[in-house]
């Protein structure tokens, strides 16, 4: 049995865990926003909106997360500087890794959330919409009062999955030097020369988040099924 003696670096991992969860929550909020926008685009009557949403999900699913993170953190500032230079301005742009991390992870998982929301909107029975129309509801009112409240129930399981994948993906932000859980473990591993100990400890933290999330997801799902027929 390997005992996990963290040589006084335990606090660092806990702090890293806090930052990981913070980044995760921020990215999730962003992903839900992008997801709703993306789903709106995909189900839109406007060809341009459909095209834009389609390109978004296609590109995100076809390009590795690591490339996207590197692109946002190193690429975007350089791009802005280059463009500014061309316009004759000398600009120095630095992205905060925390902001860049949230933005990139949110953007990536927004694409997955898009598919979740699209499926959820389509899962709301058509006659609910027709009933709303029959009562003279306009599009906006119907969306707000009928479609959105019902859609969430169908979206929750999918969003739970997105969250669990997303929180693991935050480990990648360690490559842009943000001291979240993975980076903290890396620093501790180097300092103590006990890489297995610290990476294993970190993996248990992630596993803990996954298991807690699974339990909460189960609770939320059974809660959200109140009054709904189980298929």
């Amino acid at each position: 049995m390997v005992t996990l003696d963290l040589h006084g670096y335990g606090w660092m991992l806990w702090r890293g865990l806090g930052l990981t969860i913070l980044v995760g929550l921020g990215a999730m909020a962003l992903a839900v926003t992008f997801g709703l926008l993306g789903a709106w685009g995909k189900l839109s009557r406007y060809r341009a909106a459909r095209g834009l949403a389609g390109t978004y999900t296609t590109v995100i699913r076809g390009v590795p997360e690591l490339i996207l993170i590197l692109l946002v953190y190193y690429g975007v500032p350089t791009l802005i500087q280059d463009l500014a230079a061309r316009a004759g301005h000398d600009l120095r742009v630095d992205l905060n890794p925390f902001v860049a991390g949230i933005a990139t992870i949110g953007l990536i998982y927004g694409a997955f959330a898009t598919e979740v929301f699209r499926g959820a909107f389509q899962a709301v029975p058509r006659d609910q919409v027709e009933a709303a129309r029959a009562f003279g509801m306009g599009r906006a009112l119907m969306l707000r009062r009928i479609l959105l409240p019902q859609m969430w129930r169908f979206a929750l399981p999918g969003l739970g999955n997105v969250w669990m994948v997303l929180i693991k993906a935050t480990a990648l932000i360690s490559v842009i030097q943000l001291e979240e859980l993975m980076r903290s473990a890396d620093i501790a591993a180097r300092a103590t020369r006990l890489p297995f100990t610290f990476f294993f400890a970190a993996s248990l933290f992630y596993l803990g988040i996954t298991i807690v999330s699974m339990v909460i997801q189960g609770r939320i799902e059974s809660w959200s099924y109140r009054g709904a027929q189980r298929g």
Binding site: K168, A169, T170, A171, L172, S174, M182, A185, D186, A189, R193, L194, P195, F196, T197, F199, F200, A202, S203, Y206, L207, T210, I211
Partner: peptide
């Protein structure tokens, strides 16, 4: 559960760096 519940990056570091231990 372990391999689906933890990030691939951690797994990679566990094998590559962790094996050194």
């Amino acid at each position: 559960l372990y391999f689906r519940g933890t990030p691939l990056l951690v797994q990679l570091f566990l094998v590559y760096y962790g094996s050194g231990q």
